[in-house]
Amino acid sequence: MRFEDVELGDELPVEHPDTSLPKIEQWCEAADQHFARFVDHEAAKAEGLPGALVPGIMSQGFLLAMIHRWAPGCTVHKIDTVFRGPLVIETELTITGAVTDTDDETRMAEIDLTIATEEGRTGVIGTALVSFAG
């Protein structure tokens, strides 16, 4: 995808990231983040959480992967996410993106990002600044 192909209002294909326990465990191992609240529902509930949580940084990784799939070869210059509520592992999350601005001078696009839970609550909002390969 080239900058010229991108228009304000374009929406990235909706995705449902893999939040299965093996994937969460793989990320925790790679990130050296060994906390029971990410992999053990009962331990998380004992901390007052609704269940084991998708690590916030991992959820940011879902969004980056979505952007890279949408625009192969693109470069993410900035990603800024606000975690507004818990995302529970082994549930279906819906991640979306939309182009909200394009800059002809820098040839970058600004993208809105969201992650919503099964019940429709938005758990993460954010933005990313992206340039394109072409």
């Binding site: 304000l8 209002g9 909200t100 601005d101 600004e110 809105d112 909002i125 954010g126 933005t127």
Partner: peptide, 17 residues
């Protein structure tokens, strides 16, 4: 502090959509 929207981008979005 938790807002990520530029006001002009709201305007552009409203008109584009």
């Amino acid at each position: 502090d938790d807002g990520r929207a530029k006001v002009e981008n709201y305007c552009k979005w409203i008109r584009k959509k």
